[in-house]
Nucleic acid binder design. Sequence first.
DNA 1: TGCATTAATGGTAGCGCTACCATATGTAGG
DNA 2: CCTACATATGGTAGCGCTACCATTAATGCA
Lengths: 367, 367
Amino acid sequence: MARKRSSSRPTIADVAALAGVGAITVSRALREPEKVSQQLRHTIDGAIRTLKYIPDHNARALASSRTDVVAVLVPSLTQSVFSDVVRGIYDGLEGSNLRIEIANTRYNDAIEEQLVLNIVRHKPAAIIISGIEQTAATREMLENAGCPIVQIMDLTDSPIQKIIGFSHERAGLEMTRHLVDVGYRRIAFLTGWMNTRSRERLCGYRKALEEHGLFDPALIMRRGADSIEPPRVTEPTQNEFLSASMGRALMEETLDRHPDVDAVFCNNDVLSLGALFACQARNIDIPGRIGIAGFNDFDYMEAAHPALTTVRIHRWRCGHEAMLAVRGQLKGEDIGPRIVDLGFDIMKRASTNRSSQAATENGVRQK
Amino acid sequence: MARKRSSSRPTIADVAALAGVGAITVSRALREPEKVSQQLRHTIDGAIRTLKYIPDHNARALASSRTDVVAVLVPSLTQSVFSDVVRGIYDGLEGSNLRIEIANTRYNDAIEEQLVLNIVRHKPAAIIISGIEQTAATREMLENAGCPIVQIMDLTDSPIQKIIGFSHERAGLEMTRHLVDVGYRRIAFLTGWMNTRSRERLCGYRKALEEHGLFDPALIMRRGADSIEPPRVTEPTQNEFLSASMGRALMEETLDRHPDVDAVFCNNDVLSLGALFACQARNIDIPGRIGIAGFNDFDYMEAAHPALTTVRIHRWRCGHEAMLAVRGQLKGEDIGPRIVDLGFDIMKRASTNRSSQAATENGVRQK
DNA sequence: TGCATTAATGGTAGCGCTACCATATGTAGG
DNA sequence: CCTACATATGGTAGCGCTACCATTAATGCA
């Protein structure tokens, strides 16, 4: 009844035999080398190399009910935002023998819950999860997962364990304040489909304008699906989620319907690029007649003509630090600060560069 | 000597006990439901739901020496090119119970070889790998992996099993021909760090120009690291790999050093965007004085002012079709055509829209 | 009616590894 | 010299599942 061993794959027993030691010693040499004499360690290393032995992590997981998988939950792969974050996570991996498993929640709580259940059942080494709006059930599963959990890309006072990110509301607020500061008064908000975090930015925009009695709900210009689920994106040309074309259309609509608007705060750089093109096509002076601001600081923002004002956030760093935090905790280090605010930078560029002089004039013109 | 069972996790035995059947029957109900009577199937489903049973894929892999992991090898996560491909792969996953494991080769053969070794040893359900330039050792491992292999994003006459992609050389060739057709004569090639595939496009560019005796190596304008390894990218603002700023600098250099250049073919849309901004900043007429063409057809290309000519390639579709091909083969379907050419489209837009009238004039002017 | 064949289910023995103990050695302390 | 205790190594029994057979009941067909 012996089951055939596919002779191809060397096992720990083969290594042990070749090195003339017990299998368990090989296992130790791999996992806790300090507990094996230097001499044996050397012999074993040799055997491993000769046989090109690679441990089977399935067997390892089964035997130890632990894995070396870091599960990463992101809401979307569509946006370069999360590509950068994921890249940071991968870059933070190097030199460890951890593995990464990306799970895509598609901005859907039910999917997220199912994924988390599946993940915790498989005893990951750690979990990195985007945002703070997990359902109660999801949160409970995470709390009981018995591994390091890092939330990213947002902030809250009550992280599950640790959170690394920044405040979207404050980012929206500060950028809007900047626009007001330099003299814009009729500031529209351009947006595509909104998730929780982009909604927080809208919130910041609103608060900043209300501080000055400048808020006008009619100036929230929105395109794209109105659903809770994000629209499906396949090839970018059919993008109803977020695109420069959408930004261009939004800008044109704004100019047509609200001729008194003197600045647009775009919920995403992609939109701001479209807004810029719309203005160029109509020969509208930027920043004189219209100011433009975006969010993310993608590479093209500073190269644009005029260079586009935006909020720089630290996507790569966020992923990278999350991974480093995970690795620290797995090495037994202290968890450190539970809340890490990476902040953001208001990149004041030519597209909103009105002198306060011009600002005053503009304020007058607004009247 | 009994090892403690962490009571938390229900096993197949628990389900079997609750359903009053043997464990193996539960196993079958999950994997080959048609071999279990409808009645038992129903009972078992109930038990699974009551216990929230989730199979342990580590144990499954160990027992069956097979996994449900589709390994995906990409050379980079930096470029939105591969983000789109990966997104297509994930989208193609839905409804299956396959899992995805992304491995990043960093354009490095040695890393790729190590990753492939590690992957094949773990018996993946299938492998999707970018490009065709695997080392002999890598190729041999893949050939002996005993699972479906799909190469993507390029073409060759001798795929390992199946390849889904398009010809970069032909894309470069056709775009360059278009530029010549509409009358451009001194056509520069703008590029950052080049990988094998972008080099193929350069090759196409060269061939097209040589057809007309227009090739001039001095017009290959290049920035970024000259190494075989790609430069590291962290936050996009420090991007020495590929950025709009680089495109802008390249365009400015081209204008300064080669005032007779009348068109630029950018190896990437990102560069073409920078090139556009450079021209706008100098008030240079596009497409009159300078024509601009890119490669990829990112969303902003058609929104730009003027809309930018480019090569549309099918990134999402490439990943998606690769995944569907994998699923088909795993279901036992025929492998189908070994070579799937997804092609590309030359998107002729305003940035190269010279009438043939103007083209002739320009031809004259060149003399 | 008898015997081959199929359909439906179960038992047992691993898959490759590590947790848990047991067993040698060496080394210090009384 | 003996105990105590750390250091270094090994043996055994699973982890949760499925491959491989075995078994039983139901069906087909001469």
